[in-house]
Design a binder for these strands. Structure first.
Lengths: 73, 73
DNA sequence: ATATATTGTAACATATATTTTACTTTTGTC
DNA sequence: GACAAAAGTAAAATATATGTTACAATATAT
């Protein structure tokens, strides 16, 4: 697998959208709070299904939530 | 996990973009041809990393490639 | 019709996403 | 400061994405 880093703005977006709590977002998406925590901490690489459900739950697009981290300056 | 179906247009997009072969796309992304085959056949739920790399390889957006299948008519 | 490239699959192994349970740390409120 | 809510984290179990190998089916060209 190609070596790239994926970044996300899930936590930031969650804070904006009505101040959802981490657990509440997890519940809307249908994953555990721990899974959501790890995703927000960018500790791993979630599946497209979870990502699309997060985007839907936060009324935003997957584009704005997840992107490939380009090379350092 | 919430019960939704994820659909994609990877095969369609690949056909358009310079008629890449399945194996060639797999190689650009850095997965095996079998994995790409299963993704195109919508047999499972790839990771966001693979999806972003496919989008990048096909010069398109992840939005246009993957979406939640809405309820049947 | 016969080669050849490409695609579809299947069984098994491996890596890792996700869950479960539980505890600690931080943050906010009184 | 005390208390509660929310967030961070960790170990072990489970589910599943991905790799490996191999072969069958289909398409494409000659």
């Amino acid at each position: 697998m190609k070596e790239v880093h994926i970044k996300n703005s899930v936590k930031f977006m969650r804070m904006e959208q009505g101040k959802l709590t981490q657990g509440e977002l997890a519940q809307k998406v249908g994953v555990t709070r721990q899974t959501m925590n790890l995703i927000e901490a960018q500790k791993y690489n979630p599946t497209i299904k979870v990502c699309l459900l997060i985007a839907s739950s936060l009324n935003t697009s997957i584009e704005k939530l997840f992107w490939i981290e380009e090379d350092e300056v």
